[in-house]
Amino acid sequence: MPKLTRSKLSKAGVEAAKPAASVYVLRDTDPAGLILRVQPSGKKAWAVTWGRGQARNLGDFPVMTLAAARHAATMVLAEIAAHGAPVKSARGKADTLGEFMEGHYAPYVLANAKAGKGTIGAIKTVFGHWYGRRMDSITVHDWDALKTERLNAGMKPATANRDLDRIKAALQQAVTWKLLTTNPLAGVKRITRGIEKRVRYLSPVESKALRDALDAREAHRKARRERGDQWRKDRSQAPMGAFQGYTDHVMPMVLLALNTGMRRGELSQIRWGDVDLKAKVLTIRAGYAKNGKDRHLPLNSEAVTVLTTWRKDHPGNGPVFGVFSMQDGWEALLTDAKIQDFRFHDMRHDFASRLVMAGVDLNTVRELLGHSDITMTLRYAHLAPEHKAAAVELLVG
């Protein structure tokens, strides 16, 4: 008989459980019935027990987390309370997409993904009518029919791609957990959109125009403040005082984007605790990074100057900017600079393009941009043909 240990389990305790000469069991008390079997090989597996010697395997740790195992065990025990025995198959496999989503995938994603609630909600909204179907009955034709219907209704290709990514990831997790033999949508390709291949960066003339527009905007706002203070003084009112640094967030956010390649969402969420001006490093935290991983950005001299200047008027340890939208200011800036077809996100392309044209290798560019693999970065490999022409000219004898 395996050795039995009874206590309320914790994530740290489960991770720290070491293999022994024989199988032993850690039994959770919340819910009662959840156990973790630890094999001499080091393998750890969850199961739920009830009655006399009856048990059902739930999944392996760490693929199934403690939170996910507790949720799955609670569902099985609820079925036993209602029906006297689990309703699902003896092997514990989810026959339908709905059973898998609600009993396995949802608790796993909610416990492990920062946007877990949104992911589960989106899958149910789009694919809820598949929930009564066996997972192995889902076909590529099913997806194509759904995609066509939604595209004809005005859905954007980007939305279709996100939907596909979510359902493919869910089905692939079922394969990982051996609840499904193969992923029926594994071979389906994302819609290739022109926007995904778009690489828009500033020409030298446009770059100067943008910076000139930023300077002119600052000068205009400072002059307006000065006129306003004079109006207040004339009426014996307290003046607001001259700006000590930047007049608002627009110029520092734009300059920081141009010098770091940060996404707008990252710029909005960085905090002063993420900025080390002495070491000239800014850390993008996993909690708001698109790929869910920390990345450390070296700051060049202009970026350091921008942050140092902004810091004077914004002390503390809160958000550096804390602004989630600057659409009006950005569009007005482009109008003043007479720059067309240039989005805020394109400053990220501009940053990467300038690095590549300066001879920086693609893997370093990938790390700076926070791309999870080199595929996304390869779009910059074929930029600026004039630089290629200059390179081959070096071969002329």
Rank of each mutant, 00 (worst) to 15 (best):
Y246P: 02
M251G: 03
V254L: 11
E266Y: 00
H249I: 07
D229Y: 08
Q237L: 15
S268L: 00
T247F: 05
M253L: 09
L214R: 11
S268W: 00
M262W: 02
W231F: 04
P239T: 05
R225L: 03
P252T: 12
E218K: 09
E266K: 05
R217F: 03
E226T: 14
A242R: 14
Q269A: 14
S236N: 15
V250E: 05
A257S: 14
K222R: 15
A242C: 02
S236I: 00
K233G: 00
K222D: 02
L214D: 10
E218G: 07
A213I: 12
T260W: 06
H249L: 06
D229G: 08
G241E: 06
Y246M: 10
A242N: 05
L214W: 09
N259S: 10
R227V: 00
V254H: 09
K233S: 04
R221E: 15
R263M: 06
T247L: 00
H249K: 04
W231Q: 10
A223C: 03
A219C: 05
R263D: 06
E218D: 11
G241F: 03
M240K: 14
D234F: 00
L256F: 08
A223I: 04
K233I: 13
I270L: 12
S268G: 13
P239L: 06
A242V: 03
S236A: 14
A242D: 09
N259D: 11
S268C: 10
N259L: 04
G261Q: 05
A213F: 05
K222P: 01
T247S: 13
R264K: 12
V250T: 15
M253V: 11
Q237K: 14
D229H: 05
K222Q: 10
Q230H: 06
G265M: 08
A238L: 08
M262D: 07
V250L: 15
H220K: 15
L256W: 06
A238Q: 13
G261A: 05
A213S: 14
D215T: 15
E218T: 13
E226F: 02
V250D: 05
Q269P: 02
G245T: 12
P252F: 11
A216C: 07
V250I: 15
R221I: 12
A223N: 12
Q269G: 04
H220A: 15
N259F: 00
H220Y: 10
Q230A: 13
Q244K: 14
A216S: 14
A219D: 15
D248A: 11
R232S: 03
R235G: 02
P252N: 10
V254S: 10
